[in-house]
Nucleic acid binder design. Structure first.
Lengths: 207, 207, 207, 207
DNA sequence: CATGAATGAGCATTCATTCAT
DNA sequence: AATGAATGAATGCTCATTCAT
């Protein structure tokens, strides 16, 4: 009777995921507004009513997708390791990490990004869960490395925006269907790291 | 009676723009799907029916906005001038140019980008009119400069994606409401140019 | 353009009445909740959408019906005349008046009464527009007549409730389908007047 | 295994009452249609499914409530006693009896009356169980008393409608929220008896 | 050309009912 | 008997589009 029944809990979580997966798939294919609850239900293999047993309504589905994506956003061990190593290696690792996550979650991101851009609530949540979470980390990293002289004396705040902008922009270009980008995606981390990092080495490094 | 009556033509063009401006404004505020033709008509100061005298329907409005934006996309004299000058100066000029256009057209872009991401027809048109037009130019520029040894021997195709990604990404971060980015927008061209360009100079340039 | 265009105004009022008539008819036949907007639209000979051009929604229809009924609730000349005449004659006139109005508006009343009993907003409006409006008048009349010795020294407030109760109750019995009451409805005013009034004459009148 | 197992029977009856009480409570608060089976189940402390083990469906609940109310409708000893006494005393007793029952069962009546007015089956059942049962008794009483000269020579059939109308009407005014009526409810039997009865005494009684 | 009332297809949402456990 | 997750038919409402004036 309590909502802590572990079995019920598990089943409910499974249903939620089942529905969110279906929703993401349909949103990605047709956009949030053109997707109907009927389609989502069909894609999930449940009835329309069932959606409402697990979510407040259609409008809650993108938020649910964002939340699930955010849960994945833990920095993995590999990246944490790179934090302490060579600066350029960190940049490469970070780009690899981001590129991997983007590739992995592209359907989800394609599904929600347009709606995120348009829905104020979702926008705030997305900014908090993704943009800021990563920005803060990156900004701090840049600040420290600049102080240590490992990086050129740039403005950490703005540089972070530039770097994140590149992440986000590449995602958008993928969504827009840039074939070159999709085909050669695996080469992008190296290219990006080169583009950005080599501009970040201190002047002294150039001598 | 002919459709080449210059006065009629002019009036019709004015009406079209009046409606597109209103549509862009409403789309920017509420998104394409949440905007109603009634609102757009009100914002434009015309009746709903009038919209249908100038456009096939609501779905044609984003395309109309894209088309108008594309008309603005002529490379202005300043930029063309920079093409032939110092490489770094060109990068700064290009970023300034882009940043300015983004700032100038933000409402329009905010209005259509989410729909562009979701509507295949619009997506193709947008890619052709914006992404590819600039990409092609930039790619060629990089190719030439690399051949001349003015730039490090990078892959022009991928580098172009990186640079354009940064443009697009910064626009998206603005739309997402990043306050720092909006407040310090004028500093971004310099920062971006530094970030990217200094990574593009040939190794020899570092000595 | 102003909402004071007399022709538009007239047409709009006609449509509103057309819709309210249809709604009353359907509500009377099936009750508020079992009536669908589709049915109402069909009965009114308009499309569903048109209902929403004239009313906020289904829930506004009973309120509209109440309002129209209230507009009819002006005391007619006949009754005002009776106010100044013989007391018993006034009671007969009043009961005739009420009985007539009930008979006349039975469909409307049958349509809304069940919903009035259940919907707080509607209930308050109904009480204010019908019950209290008549109660106040009647109470004052009784008070004056009691002071003049034309009526037995009763409590005007409670007597008014009793009299109005009888009005309302007879309406309800009609709605419940009491055949005797419906068949012999024309005799009720006399019967009611006898029942109530002869109990209101002062003791002295019995000698 | 037999359905005459007395213990099983008792438990089942208890469950039925438990559910009907909950239903009456929820119907009274929100009306039949706005009440959901989920709410009723919660109020009854059972699951939704259980309701269907004891009733055919939601539609059967009002009938169940009416039936239980009807079971209470036995004329109690006091009233039977009054039948044989003084005529005026009988009227007072009858009004007291009715007023008491109305007060006692107001929640149930408020719960079902709106639905009774709208649902044909329920309407017939209600009329048979309540209106007619009392009407028949009262009509016969009046007929006898008129024959004996204890009452003025009125039409028993119509007078009965008038009296019952007052009962029903006062209930409706209570449901409508007439504060005076609720506050001074205990005084109403006397007032009503005076109103009605003194008009029923034979002319001779006035001397 | 402009208007805006009318249209009705389309959709999210609700909720009585079922049935496997 | 009891449960409550799943169901899906039913319905109120929106809004792009049409067209008579």
């Amino acid at each position: 009777m309590a909502d802590t029944d572990p079995i019920r809990e598990q089943l409910a979580a499974a249903r939620r995921n089942q529905i969110l997966d279906a929703a993401a798939q349909v949103f990605a294919a047709k956009g949030f507004h053109r997707a109907t609850t009927r389609e989502i239900a069909q894609a999930a293999g449940v009835s329309e009513g069932t959606i409402y047993n697990y979510f407040g309504g259609k409008a809650d589905l993108p938020a649910g997708i964002v939340m699930r994506l955010a849960d994945l956003e833990s920095l993995d061990a590999e990246l944490l390791e790179a934090l302490r190593g060579d600066v350029r290696a960190f940049f490469v690792a970070m780009f690899r990490h981001r590129a991997h996550r983007i590739e992995q979650s592209e359907e989800m991101l394609r599904a929600i990004l347009p709606e995120v851009l348009v829905n104020p609530d979702l926008r705030d949540r997305f900014r908090a869960d993704f943009v800021l979470r990563i920005a803060t980390l990156l900004e701090e990293y840049v600040r420290v490395r600049v102080a240590h002289g490992d990086l050129r004396p740039v403005d950490p705040e703005l540089v972070t925006r530039g770097v994140q902008g590149m992440f986000v922009g590449l995602l958008v270009l993928r969504i827009l269907g840039d074939e070159t980008l999709i085909e050669r995606w695996d080469e992008m981390p190296e290219v990006c790291a080169t583009l950005l990092f080599d501009g970040l080495v201190p002047e002294g490094g150039r001598r």
